[in-house]
């Protein structure tokens, strides 16, 4: 397994059932966008969590904050659980001294998504910002 350098990024193209995932340390871009209801979330997100595990292991903390943006439309309950596993890696980065934050983007009137964000906000120990969007932004 190669060392993860700042030039090694993870890019997964979106499908109708899986999100676009970009983890690009070089450009300090970390985001998930789209739908997430794969047939098997554990299998789909396995390589993503492996990438994060290596990134946490090899990352040298900087003073500039790393922000993960999550903007999902439809996601199934198994994705909900995997997301928590994913957020734990950002907790691990924070424990290494890397400032991090997670931004949860959702349609302003969508109380279900807001509640899901609040659940995560309560469950993770990193700054977790809920970002309501208006219909033309969502």
């Amino acid at each position: 397994m190669s060392d993860l350098t700042t030039s090694e990024k993870l890019v997964i193209e979106p499908t109708f059932t899986t999100p676009e995932i970009v983890f690009d340390p070089g450009n300090r871009q970390f985001y998930l966008r789209g739908n997430s209801y794969p047939e098997n979330s554990v299998k789909f997100y396995g390589p993503v969590l492996e990438w994060l595990s290596r990134f946490v292991q090899n990352h040298v903390p900087t003073s500039e904050s790393l922000t993960l943006e999550v903007h999902l439309e439809y996601f199934n309950t198994s994705t909900a659980k995997v997301l928590l596993d994913l957020f734990r890696y950002f907790e691990a980065l924070q424990e290494k001294g890397q400032p991090v934050q997670i931004r949860w983007l959702y349609l302003a009137e969508d109380t279900e998504m807001e509640d899901a964000g609040l659940d995560y906000q309560a469950a993770v120990k990193v700054p977790f910002e809920l970002v309501p969007l208006h219909e033309d932004q969502a």
């Binding site: 794969p38 979330s41 309950t77 198994s78 909900a80 659980k81 928590l84 279900e112 659940d119 469950a123």
Partner: peptide
């Protein structure tokens, strides 16, 4: 129960979180 299963529950063999029906009943 949802929160407890989300935080400490295990995945099924098919990668499910055992939260589906609970979610439907709740929503």
């Amino acid at each position: 129960l949802h929160h407890q299963t989300l935080v400490s529950g295990s995945y099924s063999d098919s990668g499910g979180a055992n939260l589906g029906l609970l979610q439907v009943i709740y929503k």
